[in-house]
Amino acid sequence: MTGQHRIVVLGAGYAGLAAARRLASKAREAEITVVDARASFVERVRLHQQAAGQQISKWDLREMLANKNIHFVRARATQIDTEAKRVLLDSATALDYDTLVYALGSIADPNSVPGVAEHAYLLATPEDAGRFTAPRGTVVIVGGGATGIELAAELAETQPDSRVMLLGPDEPGAWLSTRARAHIRRVLERLGVEIRSDAKVIEVTGEGVRLADGSLIEAAATVWTAGFGVPDLAARSGLSVDRVGRVLTDASLRSLSHPDVYAAGDSAVIAGPGGRELRMACATALPTGKYAADAIATRLRGGEPVPLRFRYAVQCLSLGRRDGLIQFLHTDDSPRRTVLTGRTAAWVKEAVVRGAGWAARP
């Protein structure tokens, strides 16, 4: 026992590393430990590039964190004993904490429809991306969200001999502005992606995907990008969570049920402008990780943090290496009419991704 305030950060993604980095500078009197099952930090927003066969960078977590005097434990948390303030690990050891930062991020949801777990590839983790190799024949991507769009464009550009289909019940980028949706469709079609925006997938089989109308689309590989979930650790440990399993938080990102626990990023329910919950995104993880650290440091000094005030400015999508989309946003995260497209947008997106990676790495 050192007598120092012990802060344990669960998760070494964007939110967890941003929190640890900020705590190292704002709460120097504390002992900070980061726990993650992986040995390396990989930029999650580049996983579609990895799946398309490109090499993406990774950084050794132990080395990175040691440079900031942050301890690193490579292990998976199996239980949080909130009474004893202890995290149990799969290494048959445990870590005691005074304050816990819960930043385990999100994972794919393989239970969305029958057959996903058995027959589809996922794209939520580096391990998911590493398992996928574009085969000869048709690649069906299910989901017209950001992940599906970016993967479809990257595959079509990188693997021009593959047949790439993007399926979903709505237009790709349906939440974006009319101009943004038109640009996405135009670029995808130029790259040779076949788009089905009337396709509701009800089953994934070894042969392909079955639609609600009973038809079967044959595929050499199916990639499932429709929806994400979160680890069930918080729910199993008795923290107050929503129906998905995300930690319910107050205006300072403190758990509603356990005030010595803070949550940030995809695994937290965080109120945003206009009463809308902040979405799962790197653009959410970094600032909320930093804010949670600031709130903790403020309370350690005997103060009371100001409530989180946050808004999105843009949403960025890559459409291969030579095109992109920057959607400007209103305060409540709804799209403005203004968009940036083409090579300039691709450059801006790359700059944002590099900046996010730098901001997360201690």
Rank of each mutant, 00 (worst) to 15 (best):
residue 221 A to H: 00
residue 237 S to Q: 14
residue 286 L to K: 00
residue 189 E to P: 09
residue 221 A to P: 00
residue 213 D to W: 00
residue 21 R to M: 05
residue 149 I to Y: 06
residue 286 L to I: 11
residue 238 G to H: 09
residue 153 A to R: 14
residue 102 Y to D: 02
residue 131 R to W: 02
residue 93 T to S: 09
residue 270 I to C: 05
residue 43 E to Q: 11
residue 209 V to G: 03
residue 47 L to D: 05
residue 76 R to A: 14
residue 10 L to K: 07
residue 191 L to A: 15
residue 75 A to P: 08
residue 316 C to G: 15
residue 13 G to M: 10
residue 355 G to V: 12
residue 220 A to G: 03
residue 201 V to L: 08
residue 65 L to V: 15
residue 264 A to R: 02
residue 5 H to I: 13
residue 357 G to C: 07
residue 170 D to G: 06
residue 219 A to D: 00
residue 275 G to M: 15
residue 285 A to G: 07
residue 324 G to R: 13
residue 41 F to G: 04
residue 241 V to I: 12
residue 206 G to P: 02
residue 286 L to P: 00
residue 343 R to I: 12
residue 286 L to C: 04
residue 64 M to C: 15
residue 353 V to C: 04
residue 147 T to W: 13
residue 225 T to F: 01
residue 79 Q to L: 12
residue 165 M to H: 07
residue 259 P to D: 03
residue 44 R to T: 13
residue 154 E to C: 10
residue 331 T to V: 15
residue 59 W to L: 13
residue 340 L to Q: 12
residue 209 V to F: 01
residue 76 R to M: 11
residue 286 L to Y: 01
residue 8 V to R: 10
residue 44 R to K: 13
residue 53 G to M: 08
residue 58 K to T: 10
residue 32 I to Y: 07
residue 42 V to N: 01
residue 215 S to L: 00
residue 196 R to Y: 10
residue 343 R to W: 10
residue 136 R to V: 13
residue 293 A to K: 06
residue 3 G to M: 03
residue 214 G to T: 00
residue 137 G to I: 11
residue 14 Y to S: 13
residue 86 R to C: 10
residue 95 L to K: 02
residue 270 I to S: 04
residue 129 A to M: 02
residue 220 A to N: 03
residue 175 W to A: 14
residue 260 D to R: 03
residue 333 D to M: 07
residue 257 S to E: 00
residue 352 V to F: 09
residue 203 E to S: 06
residue 108 A to Q: 07
residue 212 A to K: 02
residue 38 R to H: 08
residue 100 L to F: 04
residue 213 D to K: 02
residue 295 A to T: 02
residue 188 L to G: 09
residue 20 A to P: 05
residue 186 R to I: 04
residue 274 G to Y: 11
residue 97 Y to M: 02
residue 35 V to F: 12
residue 157 E to T: 06
residue 218 E to T: 06
residue 287 P to N: 10
residue 45 V to R: 01
residue 45 V to T: 14
residue 282 C to Y: 06
residue 25 S to R: 15
residue 235 A to I: 12
residue 282 C to V: 15
residue 100 L to V: 01
residue 30 A to Q: 11
residue 165 M to S: 06
residue 209 V to M: 04
residue 340 L to T: 11
residue 183 H to L: 01
residue 207 E to A: 09
residue 140 V to H: 07
residue 359 A to F: 03
residue 284 T to W: 01
residue 224 W to T: 07
residue 91 S to L: 02
residue 42 V to I: 07
residue 83 E to I: 12
residue 215 S to I: 03
residue 333 D to P: 01
residue 173 G to R: 06
residue 72 F to K: 01
residue 280 M to G: 13
residue 212 A to V: 05
residue 293 A to L: 01
